[in-house]
Design a binder for these strands. Structure first.
Lengths: 335, 335
DNA sequence: TTGAAAGCGCTAACAC
DNA sequence: GTGTTAGCGCTTTCAA
């Protein structure tokens, strides 16, 4: 058997001819039901149905400039952290009758630029989650597109961010309450806005609590990078490590365990993100949770709103965070 | 501050006027570098760059029918199983200079249909992974689009499937070697092609090995559904449970442990997919791994190939599977 | 209420 | 090597 290539799709003209009306009438039947005779409309729709006709979104967009499609770009779609963001964004998009396309920038600035450039004319706007693009570049993107940033704050650009100030305070309070006097921060990629907020918050909270924090790294936010980071923890002779994210934390824990370090007896571990798997591991990971679904929803809602109004006002949001305390943190026992 | 709405994008005419050439020359500079003077081309490209011009894919597609964009649809983008598929598909798409958009069908037939309908004219083809659509519907989709199926076999439609016959044999052999005489299969959604292949393979392999297998369910392929499934395992008084997928298996293990059942001492657990997290949990999960990255790559490569040839020949692929033996399976101790 | 015609941004003949 | 022209499928004035 040899399948044939896709056959030609029915166009508006096919329907018009078949229905014995003009193309514009077919068009109106779909987009402007009020402005066409009820009977005509039903006939047209029936013919369209029979011919399997659906308006070509590309052609429609060419004229109207609108595609009813939104793009959500994430640095690494395989990182479970983004699962919540995606789910939330999808829900909001569906509710508003928009199609959501997802793009994976693969932690690469060039891939992100490329995707924005290629998708730009084909979508009504972007949600850029944890964008790696420099501020300047984002400004340019915002000039050409509707744009909402997730966990990134740039003056003049709408954003939805997690409250890391409060979150890091929760972490520090938690550790301090267990008697820890110092901690290391295992840093992630330097371009990460979240990472810089986390480190800033940690420093400030630590000062308030009378704890000392030191930063090492940067490390890639992956399981694999955990080994190197874990070894740094061991040499640091600290009693607590706060990791850039859960992926790194999971990798750190595995390595520490392999090397005979007990968690949390010898060292407490904290992560960020509360990803799938963070409560599956042993010991279960203490981690700062964001409301990722809410964030995704809020971002898409805001984006749609942006597209609807002509003069845009910047309206940014901060979402709460909360510390999920599990078994990877405990009382300080000076080593 | 109030950001202005996106300003008008530069068109090919803007570039043409600014560069003092015709639109077609600009077009050729981008798509047909050989057929334009080197100097002219460089000048045009420079002007385009300065104006921030990029060809509008919608307009281009309207003419040529090609968008250089491919769509990959998965039932649940948050299921870590699909991470590998996505990565592989992305790699292949990038290599071929195509843009890949991802769609999440949310395990819903209507969402899947809707996405196919809306994205259809905007992409050069689809990879449908673990599609929930009935055969008939897929036939229709294949008439209108280039289409490659992942883990679904339909005569006349190109597909890439995992070798579940071999995989289930490996599972059964593994269990039998540990002295297990019977097992339950905790089934997933009835529409799941993979699920039906797994069950069929299990039955056949069990017969050969002289084991008995029983099927219970269906269960939703989620962590949450694990509780109900686990309880079924307990009443079944069997020594081994093979779960529809790892998500379900993880949920089952958690519940079993909660109820004081020891794994693998009292009951051995096997999953499918080898997802992220399956080696993080305690005990680590024995599971059948597919080569998901290869599958994603192969699917996209095949899809691109489909688009290039006029008369399509069906060329389907079967990819190997291998059992990853971890701590959740062990010797049978009759309860 | 409907039709005719222009045009969205681009590419592909076809000329020159 | 480069310009001119005619659409791709659709929406949207403008007339009728």
């Amino acid at each position: 058997m040899s399948p044939t290539p896709p056959r030609r799709r029915a166009t508006i003209l096919d329907v018009a001819k078949e229905a014995g009306v003009a193309a514009s009438t077919v068009s109106r039947s779909f987009t402007n039901p009020g402005r066409v005779n009820q009977v005509t409309r039903e006939h047209v729709l029936a013919v369209a149905q029979r011919l399997g006709y659906a308006p070509n979104p590309m052609a429609r967009a060419l004229e109207s400039g609108r595609t009813d499609t939104l793009a959500l770009l994430v640095p690494d779609i395989t990182n479970p952290y983004f699962a919540g963001v995606i789910k939330g964004a999808e829900r909001a998009a569906a509710r508003a009758g928009r199609t959501l396309v997802l793009g994976d920038t693969q932690e690469s600035v060039t891939t992100e630029e490329e995707l924005v450039r290629r998708l730009g004319p084909a979508v009504d706007g972007f949600v850029l989650s944890a964008s790696r693009l420099p501020d300047r570049e984002l400004q340019r993107v915002a000039e050409l597109n509707n744009l909402v940033l997730l966990n990134r704050a740039i003056p003049g650009i709408t954003g939805v961010v997690a409250d890391f100030a409060s979150g890091t305070r929760q972490i520090v309070d938690h550790l301090a309450s267990h008697g820890h006097r110092s901690a290391v921060f295992l840093a992630g990629p330097p371009e990460s806005w979240s990472g810089s907020r986390r480190w800033a918050g940690l420093q400030e909270a630590a000062e308030t609590a009378g704890m000392t924090v030191r930063r090492v790294g940067p490390y890639s936010p992956t399981l694999e990078a955990g080994a190197a980071a874990a070894d740094a923890v061991i040499t640091s002779s600290t009693t607590a490590a706060v990791c850039h994210n859960d992926m790194l934390a999971l990798g750190v824990m595995r390595r520490l365990l392999d090397r005979g370090v007990r968690i949390p007896d010898d060292v407490s571990i904290v992560g960020f993100d509360n990803i799938f798997g963070s409560d599956l591991c042993t010991p279960a990971l203490t981690t700062l949770a964001e409301h990722t679904q809410d964030a995704g929803e809020r971002a898409v809602d805001t984006l749609i709103h942006l597209g609807l109004q002509r003069s845009r006002t910047e309206q940014s949001w901060q979402l709460p965070t909360h510390l999920v305390v599990r078994a990877s943190t405990g009382p300080c026992r000076i080593r």
